[in-house]
């Protein structure tokens, strides 16, 4: 995309933003509402240049939020990108759509623990007895993300997403090792869940919103959904172009 095009896009967005605020009438609500809108529409930030470019090519209607607030989403983007960063091997969590994947999962049955036993009474147990809290995954995430922000402000006086990558790693390590003491949830429990759903978003079928264009699979030479491996099973390693469940439709 040429530079001119980019400028043009920005101009269009500014106009449509004004139009949105005007027609929705929220701008009159004062400071608090203005703050929300500022978070809702971060159109002028550098971060979103790539998303804008992608959107101009083919609009992915799947990439909108069902659960996270815009601020929470930014934190999730930054944190998952540290768990699986972009490097010489290829894209990181953010470019593979992992934050959207997580948002969509938490909005559904996974987030509501609908197939888990969530009956009282609740007691603290041994580690080997597994999770015994009363909070559902979506609630744990909400608390966890807030605590991640609190801890970033406490330690570095900044938003998590505005920290340097070294500082972000430092914060995440403190969560992973339970150096952060939280009263409501386990910091390491939240971190492990975040790591787990990040891996899911990288490597699940693209139908769930992550692993965009199967690039997660491609990076590790995983061929995805193949009907058979009769021809390769007795042979040495073979690179195979991946296929997804979409190919079955």
């Amino acid at each position: 995309m040429t530079k001119d095009n980019e400028n043009k896009t920005s101009e269009e967005e500014r106009i449509s933003r004004r139009r949105f605020i005007k027609s929705s009438g929220v701008a009159v609500g004062g400071l608090a509402v203005g703050g929300v809108i500022g978070g809702l529409i971060p159109w002028r930030t550098e971060d979103n240049k790539q998303q804008r470019q992608a959107a101009n090519e083919t609009k992915n209607y799947n990439q909108a939020l069902m659960f996270f607030s815009q601020a929470e989403f930014k934190t999730v983007e930054a944190a998952t990108e540290r768990i699986f960063p972009k490097d010489h091997n290829g894209p990181g969590a953010k470019d593979l759509g992992v934050p959207f994947y997580i948002d969509h999962q938490l909005a559904g049955s996974y987030g509501f623990n609908s197939r888990d036993y969530m009956e009282p009474p609740f007691f603290h147990g041994e580690k080997e007895q597994g999770y015994q809290g009363r909070l559902k995954r979506r609630e744990i995430f909400r608390v966890g993300l807030r605590e991640l922000q609190n801890y970033s402000h406490q330690k570095y006086k900044k938003e998590f997403s505005e920290l340097s990558t070294e500082e972000q790693d430092d914060i995440l390590k403190d969560f992973e090792s339970d150096k952060v003491k939280l009263s409501t949830i386990s910091a390491s429990g939240f971190f492990n869940m975040l790591r787990g759903v990040t891996l899911e978003g990288l490597y699940s079928d693209p139908l769930y919103g992550g692993n965009i264009d199967m690039d997660g699979w491609r990076m590790r030479d995983y061929p995805g959904d193949q009907m058979n491996y009769l021809d390769v099973i007795e042979e040495g390693f073979k690179k195979i172009e991946p296929r997804s469940l979409r190919d079955h439709m």
Partner: peptide, 18 residues
């Protein structure tokens, strides 16, 4: 069925623990 998330991690074929 070639869906690791649905079958292996969301336990499609297993007893509903709730």
């Amino acid at each position: 069925v070639h869906d690791e998330l649905r079958y292996a991690l969301r336990y499609e074929l297993f007893q509903d623990l709730s």
